[in-house]
Every structure is written in C-alpha cells, then in structure tokens.
Write a protein that binds this DNA or RNA. Structure first.
Lengths: 130, 130
DNA sequence: ATATTTGTACTATATAATTAATACAACATA
DNA sequence: TATGTTGTATTAATTATATAGTACAAATAT
C-alpha cells in the first residue's frame, strides 16, 4: 500500500495526482499485483475530495488495464498490465521513445545523456515485463 | 523547412500541434539552427487559423529558448537551446527519465526494452548537446 | 431476501484553456 | 520619413476540464 497525498497548489488536478502516485507506486514496487486499493469513498474522505474525483482516477487506470475494478468488491492492481499486439507494441515503444527524446533535446540532453541516466537510475530497478 | 499539418480531431490544441512539430523538426534535423520559420500571418493563412494561434506556439518556444523572435524581421531557430544550471539539469533529467520509465512500464516495457530501442533508433541520431 | 458495500451515472457549476477579432508597436526598407 | 512587414497586446466568446452533489446499480455478506 502507498500513502496518497494531494497538493492543492501547483495546478496539477487531484485526479491526476492520484493516477501518477498509483503508476509510480507500481513502477517502484510499492504496489503489488492483486493488491486492493482504498475504496473510492474511503480515499475520498481521507483526501477530503468528492468520491467522483477518485473514481475518475481509477477509471482512467482501468481503461489502461492498470487497475481492475469490480462493483461491490473494490479496485485492484491488475495482474497483466496493458495487453497489446506485437505491432501495437512496436508502434507504442517507438512513439514514447520519440517523444521522450524530443523532450530531452528540448532541455539540451543528448540521447547518450539520457541512456546513461536511465542505466544508473536506482529508483526504478523494480521495472520488468511481467 | 518542415510542412505543418493540423489535425482538428484528437483533442490536441492547434498551437500545441505546431509546438510539437517544431520540436521534433529540430530533434530530427529537419529544422536547422538559424533557420527562419514562416511568419505568424503566413502560417495562419496556410493552416486556416488565427495568427494568435501561431504566435502562441512561437511564444512558448521562445520562452523555452528554442526560438528567437524579432518583431519586424521574423522568428528563427535559436542557436543555443535551453540553458539550465547543473543542478536544474540533474533534476530535469531525473524527472523526465522517471516519467518516461513510468509510462514505459504502463505499456509493459522494461527499462532494458526502452534502452535497446533508444540505442538502435535511427530517427533521432541528429541529437546532441550543441 | 435484504441490507451494506462497492463502483457508476447524471447533473450542475466554476474555472481554465483555446481560439478568434482586431488594434497596437517595433523593425526594416524604399 | 513613409510604408509595409513583423510580432504583440487586449478583449471576447466558445469549449473543455475539474470538482462536487446526489441518485443509481451491481456485488457481497448477513
């Protein structure tokens, strides 16, 4: 489980902050496959927002196949992650790499810079395919 | 020079589509340092939008030091790119790498997957620091 | 069965983002 | 200097986003 925190300043919408925290919780290994998230009501009360704000975050992650929701029982970390065809996977990885490099260039980093940074980044060493 | 195209569907605002096309134009080598972009009016007519829409795109890129505008003469690709302090650079590269890996994970890619993809991607081999 | 728990749907509202119409100001050049 | 070119500023209207209030529906548990 992770602890959710909302920052009212900064302009990032509440529901997006929740999405980001769940995504990074998974990526960093603090949220495990099959684990149940707080109910929309529980988290809404805890964070002092409307339950629809939580539901919206969960919904977006469900569309991405990151979460698995069952009305009546709750919301869980999905076992499988996103399922794409090989062709879709190739297109997707190409897209995100291209976009990433474009952003990196904008800030003056070379491809070699970011690859080096990725390789010795110890914050994300829980990442893998399964 | 590059050819601009606007997609009215998809939800991406016009000015952002222009920003992205210029950024990637630079990253891919199709826009060279010092090159002049179309005037806000010319591009506005060509793309059938208001000149402020083009101006907004150029403005954001000027704030990022990607473009260089002179009233009366035109808008040009800046020679230097973004200038950040070493500390800001470290924070920035950390941020974009972290975000990139989180997105990659979302689609089931491992760090090794994306590094491999970055290394043999020939679309972006014009990238460098200067 | 029925009551409770869970997510969902619908509606309203305030705010932000986007685009446009049009007038202005700086620069170049004839 | 006068005129045309360039980007800028102001304002308005439309559209999209974010959040909330409240009612509904599905699953679970008693």
């Amino acid at each position: 489980m992770i602890t959710f925190i909302l920052d009212p300043s900064g302009g990032t919408p509440f529901y997006r902050q929740i999405i980001d925290q769940i995504k990074f919780g998974i990526a960093s290994g603090n949220l495990k496959t099959g684990e149940q998230l707080p109910t929309v009501r529980a988290l809404a009360v805890e964070l002092k927002v409307n339950l629809n704000t939580i539901a919206k975050a969960y919904k977006e992650l469900e569309i991405l196949s990151i979460l698995d929701t069952q009305q009546g029982s709750g919301t869980f970390i999905n076992a499988n992650g996103v399922v794409l065809s090989e062709e879709e996977k190739q297109k997707k990885i190409q897209d995100i790499c291209k976009q990433f490099l474009t952003v990196a260039y904008t800030y003056g980093f070379s491809k070699e810079d970011v690859i080096a940074r990725l390789q010795n980044d110890n914050l994300n060493n829980n990442l893998n395919n399964k």
